[in-house]
């Protein structure tokens, strides 16, 4: 994405893997996608598979639900990762550079074409009015050896980690040990669980020592079920985003949008989680902070200033009495004497 000037829109890139210098990126992407999708015998397959199986194994309310949710999510993951692969990396070659070239902030949401954007209103000379022309002027820079090395290392590590699954006995080092608990080696895990005293409860006698998946042993079945789910996801992505696609911007998936109602819009706004946090946490805190700041300036500091001002206020009230007029002082003195005499007389009564 960096090579295309920060282009993040899936609809504006296509067939990248076939472009010059992008081969390694394409292969690494495929390996990564296979991993994330939990394609059979990839490293991601073993870890995901084990987690799902364990959640079916657990007894207790809710665990079955968690298992199903995980399974569905696994399918979705396979779908959306391969959607990226099918759209961006293979298919007809096409690209449109991102915003970092022309400082334009319209990402082109929705289904309107890119042709009507007012590109090139400032910035780089020579960029045409329309995306297609612009693309002709823009030369994406393919990743250098540094990025390729990193990608290759990661991809090789993924494959190597998967490879160890076939060595899943105790004697094969730490990776083998990690994979040991996978359902690929379900007998071991099941034996462990059956031995665990926590599971001997089996309150419902007709159940086996652990939970079931559609009446089967989850460890055994999940091996296949998760593979099928993953492949289904990939197939869906293939059908909707690759088959018969001739342009970057459209695919069969677009036909589904009206049928899904408001869901695509919600998803585009990340289910409004950010907005929710903003309204429930950030905004009230922000308001509270302003309130505190005002309190601090007016009330807390105001009291301090009041304490500081008190002597001055008293002074300004008392000052007029010191007016230098002797008879004024004499009257004051006489009054004082009168008060004292009165007090003495009253007290002695």
């Amino acid at each position: 994405m960096h090579g295309f000037a920060g282009q993040l829109d899936l609809r504006k890139l296509s067939g990248v893997a076939f472009m010059k210098g992008w081969g390694i990126v394409g292969i690494a992407m495929l390996v990564g996608c296979l991993n994330l999708a939990g394609f059979p015998f990839s490293a991601g397959f073993f870890s995901k598979d084990q987690i799902i199986a364990e959640s079916f194994v657990q007894l207790g309310p809710g665990y079955q639900w968690i298992g199903w949710i995980l399974l569905i999510t696994a399918g979705l993951t396979a779908y959306y990762t391969f959607r990226v692969f099918f759209r961006v990396f293979i298919g007809p070659k096409y690209f449109e550079p991102g915003d970092e070239v022309h400082a334009h902030d319209d990402h082109g949401h929705g289904d309107h074409g890119h042709g009507d954007h007012g590109h090139g209103d400032h910035g780089h000379a020579g960029h045409g009015e329309h995306g297609r022309e612009e693309a002709a002027h823009f030369h994406p820079h393919a990743p250098g050896w540094a990025i390729n090395l990193v990608l290759a290392t990661l991809a090789v590590a993924c494959l190597a980690a998967a490879g160890t699954a076939f060595l899943n006995t105790d004697e094969h080092g730490w990776v083998g040990h990690m994979v040991h608990g996978s359902s690929a080696n379900y007998t071991g895990a099941a034996a462990f669980l059956e031995a665990a005293p926590a599971h001997e409860g089996a309150e419902a006698g007709e159940h086996a020592a652990h939970g079931m998946f559609l009446g089967q042993n989850p460890h055994e079945v999940m091996y296949y079920v998760s593979s099928v789910v993953g492949l289904l996801g990939i197939a869906a992505a293939f059908y909707l985003h690759y088959m018969g696609r001739t342009t970057a911007a459209t695919s069969k998936a677009d036909a589904l949008v009206p049928a899904l109602g408001p869901i695509p819009k919600w998803a585009q706004h990340k289910w409004y989680v950010d907005e929710f946090y903003n309204a429930v946490i950030v905004l009230p805190l922000r308001v509270l902070s302003h309130v505190f700041h005002t309190i601090d300036r007016l009330l807390v500091d105001g009291l301090v200033n009041l304490a500081g001002a008190t002597p001055r206020i008293i002074g300004s009230r008392v000052r007029p009495w010191q007016n230098g007029q002797l008879h004024g002082y004499a009257v004051g003195m006489a009054g004082g004497v009168a008060v004292l005499v009165a007090a003495v007389v009253l007290l002695s009564l």
Partner: peptide
């Protein structure tokens, strides 16, 4: 807490 929140709106 109070001074920290005040920091935030400076």
């Amino acid at each position: 807490i109070y001074a920290g929140l005040i920091c935030w709106v400076q």
